[in-house]
């Protein structure tokens, strides 16, 4: 029987062998290598080229430099923002809102997703309600949130939680429902008690779906953060963008956008790395 296993292993090795075998054929490899190097070079140049073009257009007089400041002006505004000490507090305030809202919203989403996914009665009770509330864009809740919570942090938290919850709930619900029935039958045949099925099979079976939902929720939490901070506050990256806009500090506005984009990008990347470890068997 070991022989069978070896045959299968050998089936897998040719992939690696083929890569090295390519080196023996002088005709192909240099060509594909040259193309690859060209692609890397173009990729590295992408952002610098864009920035240089932006700088040239801004300073050329084709556009109004006050409304469309060049990157150097934006960079100066960002440096000033950092030097004043406001940058740190703005970022801290925004990060706090995003992470608190994300954690609370996803905890609720996972919990209720498991309940509605597992128990048809709970699903019949809650799913219609959630399906009605889910399509309402969270931003549309800003006016009523101001009425309910004023300018307090609770209102900001509410908006982010609201945005995150439905996505995580739905993906968890679907994940739980899509757990392979065959795995459950196999587990039953192996003596798994029904009350242990949740922890042994269902949670892990649903995990890939939950992780996808959580990752979507990361970007949703940033969308709702924008709405939350525009609704009125005293610190935050989006708040700073709004203040700068009112003072016609376009450089600061663009710097704020860049900072927001960077933070959101880093959050997404971190979560992607985390997700890879969470679904460890892939």
């Amino acid at each position: 029987m070991e022989i069978g296993a070896e045959a299968i292993v050998q089936n897998k090795t040719p992939k690696r062998a083929a890569v090295t075998a390519g080196a023996d054929r002088p005709g192909r490899r240099p060509t594909s290598g040259r193309f690859r190097r060209l692609n890397v070079l173009v990729g590295v140049l992408s952002i610098p080229l864009f920035v240089i073009l932006w700088e040239l257009i801004s300073r050329s007089g084709i556009v109004n430099m006050v409304l469309f400041p060049p990157p150097t002006v934006v960079a100066a505004a960002v440096l000033e923002w950092m030097r004043s000490g406001q940058f740190f507090w703005d970022v801290a305030a925004s990060l706090y809102r995003v992470s608190a809202g994300f954690l609370l919203g996803s905890a609720l989403g996972v919990l209720l997703g498991i309940l509605t996914g597992q128990f048809p009665v709970v699903s019949s009770l809650l799913s219609p309600l959630f399906q009605i509330l889910r399509p309402i864009p969270p931003i549309a809740f800003v006016p009523i949130v101001i009425l309910w919570f004023g300018l307090s942090e609770a209102g900001k938290l509410f908006l982010v939680v609201w945005g995150v919850f439905f996505t995580v709930w739905l993906s968890t619900h679907i994940g739980v429902q899509k757990v392979d029935r065959g795995l459950i039958r196999a587990a039953l045949m192996l003596g798994t008690p029904r009350r242990q099925m949740l922890q042994e099979i269902i949670l892990l079976g649903a995990l890939p779906y939950i992780v996808v939902g959580l990752r979507t929720a990361v970007s949703i939490s940033f969308y709702t953060l924008v709405a939350a901070e525009l609704a009125g506050t005293f610190a935050g990256v989006v708040y700073r963008i709004e203040i700068a806009q009112q003072n016609l500090q376009t450089g600061q506005v663009m710097g704020g956008l860049a900072a927001l984009g960077l933070i959101s990008f880093i959050a997404d990347r971190l979560f992607a790395a985390l997700a890879e470890r969470t679904v460890w068997w892939r």
Binding site: D180, G182, L183, R185, A186, A187, L188, M189, L190, G191, I201, L204, L207, W280, W281
Partner: peptide, 20 residues
Amino acid sequence: GNPRPDIGMVFQQPHLFPWK
């Protein structure tokens, strides 16, 4: 009645637990 551990079953699909 219910599944019993003295009865083993192999299905058409392996149905292995992918996380184990």
